[in-house]
């Protein structure tokens, strides 16, 4: 009896370790799709696209699936970048991922765009400041550190001015690597605040400025091993900013 249970558990683990994950990222100016099996990326595709997320995503998913040589029936989980990012763009990926997971009847794994940027950096002793352009002079950001080889988010994700973000890195006083399209866009503003104050600081280059589905697949695989996933129905985007109408309403009601 005990033996049988052990075998079942072992089989279940085997299934997860080779689980094929379809990974989708449309939260920023990039659209990317990857299919990975936990150890390897089987196929991936990426493009820069300001507005055409909805036009390209479906065909990109189809292309990547065919390149990977898998059928949709082989997919064990769907991963998606839940933001923060550009509202309309990110919803295209999220709505697609949720629909696919529902039809395939597989779990969905959501990761934030900030988590994806931080994971892409890999092992470092620096503080990683992930900064995504929120437009209107604001950024979405969060700070990360590698502790015992594990990435840890050390501040809650938030939307604020870039100055506020830079000031928070000064607060920690450690060498800092700034990553993301927000960091690059506001590089001068950040430098103005942190130069001569932080022991050392650096900016990741353009290649690492956007979250990608390949890195997301890596995060998703780790979470799948721990069964940190959810049903498609319950996954919600991470906007970090209320709709303008709600902000205005709150301001008007308060005054």
């Amino acid at each position: 009896m005990g033996n049988a249970v052990g075998q079942i558990a072992c089989v279940a683990f085997e299934l997860v370790s080779i689980m094929i994950i379809l990974s989708i990222d449309t939260a920023t100016d990039g659209v990317s799709v990857a299919i990975a099996d936990g150890t390897r990326v089987l196929a991936s595709s990426e493009m820069r696209s300001e507005k055409q997320h909805a036009e390209v995503l479906t065909t990109m998913i189809d292309f990547v699936r065919k390149q990977a040589g898998v059928s949709f029936g082989d997919v064990g989980a769907v991963a998606v970048d839940i933001g923060p990012g550009l509202f309309t763009g990110m919803r295209v990926g999220i709505a697609s991922a949720k629909a696919i997971a529902q039809v395939l009847d597989v779990p969905i794994i959501g990761a934030t765009s900030l988590d994806i940027l931080a994971t892409a950096v890999g092992e470092t002793d620096d503080v990683i400041a992930c900064v995504i352009d929120a437009r209107r002079g604001e950024v979405y950001w969060s700070l990360y550190r590698c502790i015992d080889g594990k990435l840890r988010q050390v501040t809650a994700p938030q939307a604020s001015t870039v100055e506020e973000c830079a000031l928070q890195t000064i607060d920690r006083g450690q060498s800092t690597l700034f990553v993301g399209n927000g960091a690059l866009r506001y590089r001068n503003e950040i430098e103005l605040v942190v130069a001569g104050v932080l022991p050392r600081f650096d900016f990741a280059d353009e290649m690492a400025a956007l979250p990608t589905a390949v890195v997301l697949a890596q995060i998703a695989h780790e979470r799948a091993l721990r069964q940190e996933w959810q049903e498609a129905d319950t996954l919600v985007p991470e906007y970090l900013r209320l709709p303008d109408a709600e902000i205005n309403w709150a301001t008007r009601s308060a005054s």
Partner: peptide
């Protein structure tokens, strides 16, 4: 776009 993305995804998978 929410409906279009969902509909195309359902069609693709099916």
């Amino acid at each position: 776009l929410v409906g279009v993305a969902a509909a195309k995804s359902v069609a693709l998978v099916l």
